[in-house]
Amino acid sequence: MPILETRGLTKRFGGLVAVNSVDISVEQGEIFAMIGPNGAGKTTLFNLVAGLYKPTSGQILFNGRSIYPVRDFWRTYSPPFAAYYMVLDSIRRGLGLGPMPLGLKPHAVTALGVARTFQNIRLFSYMTALENVMVGEHPRMHAKVWDSLLRTPFARREEHKVRERARELLRFVGLERQADQYARNLPYGFQRRLEIARALGTAPKLLMLDEPAAGFNPQEKNELMQLIQDIRSQGITVFLIEHDMKVVMEVSERIVVLDYGEKIAEGPPQKVRTDPRVIEAYLGKSA
């Protein structure tokens, strides 16, 4: 069973079709890359999966569970809302309007095990590197308001555990010496790594990286590829958007190519590289 699957996923912004009926399926444990020219809809597709945008139509499945549109209301919402949505949903279906367009909120998607980084780095600038990763661990923590207010023994133990785990993750991405620096003071390359560490803090099953190698020199690119391999060897599926062909071809096992919101090719790097439609999308039609 694929870990992430989209079926006929479409997103319109007014007249613009950013993502047009895209079917992709990311298999458990693979490194899957999405490429395409600028404006092809790659980041939009990420935002749809992450719950930041609501699809116009189509379906998103994570681990076999439909995260858009939501079907298992009782598992997703508190009882009064679940009942309300269920009634609306059955009315809509009865009228032939399709299911209720309900998706999971971004935080709920993350809690299910989808973590992401952003194309333009979005760290918590005025928090330390360690705190950034600790925020990442938020969905795995169980301290309630009272624990936070009174610093109960439970909260103290959990804080300690989370702090240690955050240090471990910083070590994993090679930032253990920068733990107490503010995120904004870190050099660019370290900021990208820190964002990955923060995403790993949420204990994801699927890690979505949006152009992780952007602005990297060849040395940094090699280190990044190693890091991606290390992440995958921990059993985390990696789904990345990347423009750098060297990185994409070397690290990924399967590639999907988007152009003008449509999927134009899919397959292993060797096959995609020689696909005439991909060449056309990137280089233009030969006369």
Binding site: L52, T110, A115, R122, L123, S125, G201, T202
Partner: peptide, 10 residues
């Protein structure tokens, strides 16, 4: 600091 990033971290 960043509401979108906060939501994305759960």
């Amino acid at each position: 600091e960043d509401e979108v990033a906060a939501a994305a971290t759960g």
